[in-house]
Design a binder for these strands. Structure first.
Lengths: 185, 185
DNA sequence: GCCATTTTTTGACATAGATCAAAGAAATCC
DNA sequence: GGATTTCTTTGATCTATGTCAAAAAATGGC
């Protein structure tokens, strides 16, 4: 839980009352390797914060898994489309290792939003996430296979270190054979 | 101005007081073809709503213009990174035709945010935009050249009709020769 | 510890799409 | 309205990367 508080305090200072409320409304969850945190078709009504392990976001396209992103630590994640617009999720969230997260439901999140520090944090965090997705998709769409891999290595070294080759290749939009050859040198 | 009000009312109902305030704090701007609305390096402190014309968002990479998106009507746009985090913009915003927009400065936007309908609108709109960017970058990264073009034709037919071939090709991340050949059939 | 399954590596081959160059069209400018 | 610049089209290569197939390595189950 301290990890989440530290993360939030990167953005805003928290007073003890707000911290107490947060602890009350957040829940710890654990998942084993390969377990799904969210399945396609479910309505996603939580935001998670990853404290340990690794989580992969992917969807199915013509039967094949397309990896969208891999989270490795101290990050929030959710199916934004589903959470924000209360629609069935298009993607899966799956633990790639034994994983621990802190979850906050939408209704608890709404309660917390009355605390101005939390509201400010959510705005700042969302703004940053938005900008990140924007930049990453831009960078990954412009570079060749090696450039994509180098970019990912720079911004997400843990992913490159811990995730499976096939998942990384899919995330980069290249074949795993090509990624293997890039790594060979 | 009515166009902006109609747009907002897709998301929330507005009462007459809120409308009056909005009209007071929003400004009309016009740009001629090729004129820049925002230059790289500037701090972007406005959100715009496009009422007429066409606006291209692009950045420079090794001296070459990379088109990020092209707006054709009844859409909001800004340099989100710059606006939200008060940083120098990485991208340019340029009118591709004679263009009319409605602008709202950050400070006026903050005043308007006290009106709950406006705050709700901004949240809903941001959520939708976020989900759109997310989906588009996913779709465009997975398809081959023809598939990318067909996807763009479906979601943004006006762009495909009115924008220059080279700009469309750049937006899709393909060469203009390839796009030309795709169009030929 | 051994067998089954999954993942990674390697090689051979095919091809979509990039690049280069030059001609043809269209837009823009006094 | 002719000249100049910009944009689009076409053709001829060239290359990065995908696909297929099969071996090697790693992982997991019991």
């Amino acid at each position: 839980m301290q990890q989440l508080i530290d993360y939030i305090e990167q953005f805003v200072r928290l007073d003890s009352e707000t911290v107490a409320k947060l602890i009350k409304l957040a829940e710890k969850e654990t998942y084993t390797k390969k377990q799904h945190i969210l399945q396609q078709g479910q309505r996603c009504n939580k935001i998670w914060f990853l404290t340990k392990g690794m989580v992969r976001k992917y969807y199915l396209s013509e039967g094949k898994e397309i990896t969208i992103w891999i989270h490795t630590g101290n990050e929030t994640f959710t199916s934004l489309q589903s959470y924000a617009q209360n629609m069935p999720a298009e993607e899966y969230l799956q633990a790639c290792e034994d994983t621990e997260v802190i979850s906050i439901t939408r209704s608890n999140s709404e309660k917390l939003a009355h605390y101005p520090q939390i509201a400010a944090f959510v705005n700042a965090m969302m703004g940053r996430e938005f900008a990140n997705i924007d930049r990453h998709s831009r960078e990954l769409s412009q570079r060749d296979a090696r450039g994509k891999y180098e970019y990912l290595s720079k911004i997400a070294p843990e992913v490159v270190k811990r995730a499976k080759l096939g998942h990384i290749a899919s995330l980069l939009g290249i074949s795993q054979e090509t990624l293997c050859r890039i790594r060979r040198g």
